[in-house]
Design a protein around this nucleic acid. Sequence first.
DNA 1: ATCGAAATTTGACCCAGGTCAAAGATTTTT
DNA 2: AAAAATCTTTGACCTGGGTCAAATTTCGAT
Lengths: 225, 225
Amino acid sequence: MNCNCNDRGQNCIEMVPIFSNLTYDEMVEIAMITTETAIEKGESIYNSGDILESLYVIHKGSVKIIRYSDTGKEQVLRVVGSGQFIGELAIFSSEPASDTAIALEKTIMCRIDGRDIKDLMARHPSIAFKILDEMSQRLKKAETLVEGISLHSVERRIAGKILEMDDGKGEIRLEMSKGDWASHLGMSQETLSRKLTSFQDQGLIRLKGQRGIIITDREGLERIE
Amino acid sequence: MNCNCNDRGQNCIEMVPIFSNLTYDEMVEIAMITTETAIEKGESIYNSGDILESLYVIHKGSVKIIRYSDTGKEQVLRVVGSGQFIGELAIFSSEPASDTAIALEKTIMCRIDGRDIKDLMARHPSIAFKILDEMSQRLKKAETLVEGISLHSVERRIAGKILEMDDGKGEIRLEMSKGDWASHLGMSQETLSRKLTSFQDQGLIRLKGQRGIIITDREGLERIE
DNA sequence: ATCGAAATTTGACCCAGGTCAAAGATTTTT
DNA sequence: AAAAATCTTTGACCTGGGTCAAATTTCGAT
């Protein structure tokens, strides 16, 4: 078994949604063909232009998927965390990646060869369904991002994202820098900063350190147009 | 056989990439469970909020997938044409659609029940692969759209799209109105109109009627930042 | 606890592209 | 072929949010 990223007796395979419907024996089969890979904060897993050959399932940590403009400005397309995968392009097309994946923190992944995963899917339709499900979620999210950027004001986008990130406790901890966050929201860091301060002045939120946000007026945030 | 959308002796199933790797008998099996549906220009196939239960494979015609802002402004997310499918959400999630599908012209589709297609995929992995492939293409396109809208100038986006639509002959016919096109590019109709006129003044293109564009200086278009 | 680096905030300025409204073209219908 | 409907262009004006730069705060590492 190459992938020995164990955690409280659990093999990483069990923790990953796309493999969750399998029997123990099937999981062992998968564990045999996966390789553990670790990466430090700020390092890239792949770069735009690379030909991808493996699917990476994230076991621990998180990764941002970005694109660069020709002036070097970056747009965060999505953030991928534990249990999710990156490199799905590897499974089908032989075209190079058009985006770049960079670890937001120390990240541990399981690498699976593209050919192997394809083979697995053919034998276990449930894996294909899970991947397909995840892909349609992503497509939907990407389309919501397009909608947000082109149809809503920056205030609305920020308020919406704050509410979306809230787990019910009303206290949020950002998993990335405000700069990355701004880029994900499709706006400049300065604008994000200004608007957050203004939200705080209006009593909608309270900022706590660099990455903490406390919601103090949920209805107020929902009302923002 | 419910689906009788034949065309020069070809059954619609054969014309659709996601079914293209099947044997004749398998195609017949699929034809049995599909239902032909036709729709007029401007009519919707589904609306935001609907619970989708079927996958629609487009046989002839084209459909725009859009979202509305609360002020009624629309963003075209993508245009789907012959051989492609819509309603993939139906296969997995039970959540309502967040977008709306409207025919750009008279369109003929084959409807397949969500449960049936899932069943088909389990028996024919090649169908799942094709759908997955299509989904990753779409995700990539959606991400390119995000990149375009947030990272590039309107000029660059228009020039890029013109070059992308060119089939090599240098003469393009738009498959939608300029209004829809502007919305797809994430800009106002007026801005699109102004920039196209300016491109023409610069000798980069020549406009012909409402939907014709002739490229007269390809390098010039590529040079636009 | 202190220092240095990195991230964030604030100020001043400005322009790309949006809006509204009216006129002009194309296309479709009768 | 004329009329009606739809789509597109143009003009005038304006504002949201970007940019650059400098000041400040926070965080991580000694």
